[in-house]
Simulated scan of single mutants.
Amino acid sequence: MRFTKDHEWVVLQGDVATVGITAHAAEQLGDVVFVETPEVGKTVKAGDAFAVVESVKAASDVYAPISGEVIEANGELGSAPETVNASPENGGWFAKVKLSDPSEYEALMDRAAYDAFLATQ
């Protein structure tokens, strides 16, 4: 699992990256009430907003941590957005992206680096 400074996580299996928001981000948002996942077939570029998460506190963009094509969206979040709070780094994933540049994944933080980053926040 790798992480961004915008609090997204990525798990890579072959050339497919599963993307979601971190437990820290879910905790900061509070109770998630709505999730808009990206459309299947959409091409995303690392750093671009590609999803939206709304909580009782605020609405926030979710940024693509890697570039590629969205091949699957987590449709369960539409009817069960609270899954993002209950399981942010597992069942609360947002989308699966077919990676176009594997070096982008390697450039992301590992868990130790992300934890060190959080300590500076």
Results as ranks from 00 to 15, higher is better:
Ala59Ser: 13
Ala23Asp: 15
Tyr105Ile: 13
Glu76Met: 09
Ser100Leu: 07
Val35Tyr: 02
Thr37Lys: 04
Phe50Gly: 06
Val19Gly: 03
Ile71Leu: 03
Ser55Tyr: 00
Thr18Asp: 06
Gly47Leu: 06
Ser79Gln: 12
Ala112Phe: 00
Ser79Arg: 09
Asp48Arg: 06
Ala107Lys: 05
Gln28Thr: 12
Met109Gln: 00
Val33Ala: 07
Val16His: 07
Ala113Ile: 00
Ile21Gly: 02
Val84Lys: 05
Glu104Lys: 00
Glu39Asp: 14
Ala58Tyr: 03
Gln28Arg: 14
Asp48Glu: 15
Val32His: 04
Leu29Cys: 10
Gly92Pro: 07
Val35Ile: 08
Ser100Glu: 11
Ala59Gly: 09
Val19Pro: 00
Glu39Cys: 02
Ser55Lys: 02
Ala25Ser: 12
Ala73Met: 03
Pro65Lys: 09
Val10Tyr: 00
Ala80His: 14
Gly14Leu: 13
Ala49Asp: 15
Trp9Glu: 07
Ser100His: 06
Ala58Leu: 04
Leu99Ser: 06
Glu89Pro: 00
Phe34Lys: 08
Gly75Tyr: 10
Thr43Cys: 12
Pro65Gln: 08
Asp48Lys: 11
Ala86Gly: 08
Gly30Arg: 13
Ile66Met: 08
Gln13Lys: 14
Val35Gly: 01
Glu39Gln: 14
Val35Lys: 03
Glu72Ser: 09
Ala112Gly: 08
Gln13Asn: 15
Pro65Ser: 11
Gly75Asn: 11
Glu8Ser: 12
Gln13Gly: 11
Tyr63Met: 11
Leu77His: 05
Val16Trp: 04
Ala112Asp: 13
Ala46Lys: 14
Asn85Asp: 08
Gly30Thr: 13
Phe50Gln: 08
Thr22Lys: 02
Met109Pro: 01
His24Ser: 09
Ser79Asn: 13
Phe94Leu: 15
Glu39Ser: 13
Glu69Ala: 08
Ala23Gly: 14
Ala113Leu: 01
Val70Leu: 03
Ser60Met: 08
Val52Tyr: 05
Ala49Glu: 15
Asn74Trp: 03
Trp9Leu: 11
Met109Ser: 03
Trp9Gly: 03
Ile66Glu: 05
Glu39Pro: 06
Glu104Arg: 00
Gly30Tyr: 09
Gln13Glu: 15
Gln28Lys: 15
Ala26Leu: 10
Ala80Cys: 05
Ser67Val: 00
Glu69His: 03
Glu82Ile: 02
